[in-house]
Design a protein around this nucleic acid. Structure first.
Lengths: 230, 230
DNA sequence: ATAAAAATATGTTAAAAAACATACAAATGT
DNA sequence: ACATTTGTATGTTTTTTAACATATTTTTAT
């Protein structure tokens, strides 16, 4: 458990790296860590956030239910990072759901503690402002991509996005995340059938190679070109 | 010019209402106000933001150029509110363009002054965090709407959105904004032809009434139902 | 080990929306 | 006042993608 806290608070990537020792101590005392198994729901659209959730280990998909229950993945979270922070800062209920796609370690910081530290620490505020602003830019980009690009373009962009988010295995080709075809479809705004079909087409064009859920990128430039053209 | 400043700083809706007298004075000394005519470009995708832009009078559309130059409106701004604040807080160049759809008065706050006030005023930081978080929720909603709803649902949602954003005229029916069919299309992710066609259909169904660019909402419940169903 | 369920694969059909074409009306500039 | 451009309207065709159907494979549970 202390290992998790080190990960969240002291990690270079963490926005909490700007805190002083006292503040870090305060955080540690007012938080709880939990383990989630793969496929566990962390929170549901409409739930009230109880604190700021930190993902210390594992991967999480954030998705919204749309027309007729159709799922749209709006974000893929990785450690170390926040989950559901939009809702808590907007002072709203969750507008999306979060589900573990791997076993996860999650630490929740009590809302009052968070606000107390925020009030005195303008650096932390800046970090959060910057994060929200960046994600808003990403979201606006996604809106245009998902509405305007054709199926091949959308899928190509998703594969590049997954590579950028989760990196590649040591072979420098396999995307370091294992998603079902359905999840890939829900990320790319297409039906599962079309995700499967288009992945097969990419494989037959030697742009990627498929081995079950493992996806190897064989021709990144080609993939980026397809994404670019739409 | 002083009238504009009163509007921006003291307005109940303004995030600057939380500032003290000294801070407001500092703001006033380090800002400039400009007039923009209808159809003027305020900034372009890729431009570097020079300060925080406040819309004091007029209406502005924020849009991105997508595949083949196709335009997607991501936000409609009204007074009093910020424009381009995402870019300045993300420390990025603009990811969208802003164009006046009416004559506008715009005041720009120098970046250094803004940051100085932000550093000492945690209330202002909270306001900005809340604004960004709310808009991120809106953007994620839009992504799902624009990708999943059918043409009628998207157009109905846009009309309700325009009504909520800009309110109605004294007749309690006419939406208080005058957009071209092309703008309505670019807001709703459809071709201009389809926007015209679907507006005509809504009019023939007595859900709305059209008089040039004036749109009267005759059956709000009906419009919301169409939007809801997708 | 075997049945049941879930995920993947692929072909076919149907629906939605874009693209295209053309006409007409309104605004704008000279 | 006229020509030119821009915006609106509507019909037709084509493209894209969802929906559907049906195997086959893989995973999970018993």
């Amino acid at each position: 458990m202390n290992v998790e806290w080190h990960n969240i608070i002291d990690n270079q990537m963490s926005v909490f790296s700007v805190l002083n020792t006292d503040e870090k101590e305060l955080l540690k005392r007012n938080s709880t860590c939990t383990l989630y198994k793969k496929n566990d729901i962390i929170y549901k659209e409409g739930d009230k956030p109880s604190g700021l959730i930190c993902l210390s280990k594992g991967k999480v998909k954030i998705y919204k239910e749309g027309v007729g229950g159709r799922e749209q993945i709006v974000r893929m979270a990785k450690p170390v990072g926040f989950i559901g922070y939009r809702a808590i800062f907007a002072e709203q209920n969750y507008l999306a759901s979060a589900e573990a796609i791997e076993d996860c370690v999650i630490c929740t910081i009590e809302k009052e503690t968070l606000m107390k530290i925020l009030k005195t620490n303008s650096n932390l505020s800046f970090s959060i402002i910057r994060s929200l602003a960046s994600e808003l830019g990403f979201s606006n980009n996604r809106t245009v991509t998902l509405t305007q690009k054709h199926i091949r373009g959308r899928l190509a962009e998703s594969l590049v996005f997954l590579k950028d988010t989760y990196d590649l295995e040591k072979d420098n080709a396999t995307i370091k995340v294992y998603l079902s075809r359905e999840d890939i479809a829900n990320l790319s705004n297409m039906t599962t059938s079309n995700a499967i079909r288009t992945l097969s087409t990419f494989a037959s064009e030697k742009i990627i190679a498929l081995d079950g859920r493992k996806i190897k990128i064989l021709d990144l430039k080609g993939l980026e070109r397809i994404s670019e053209l739409g």
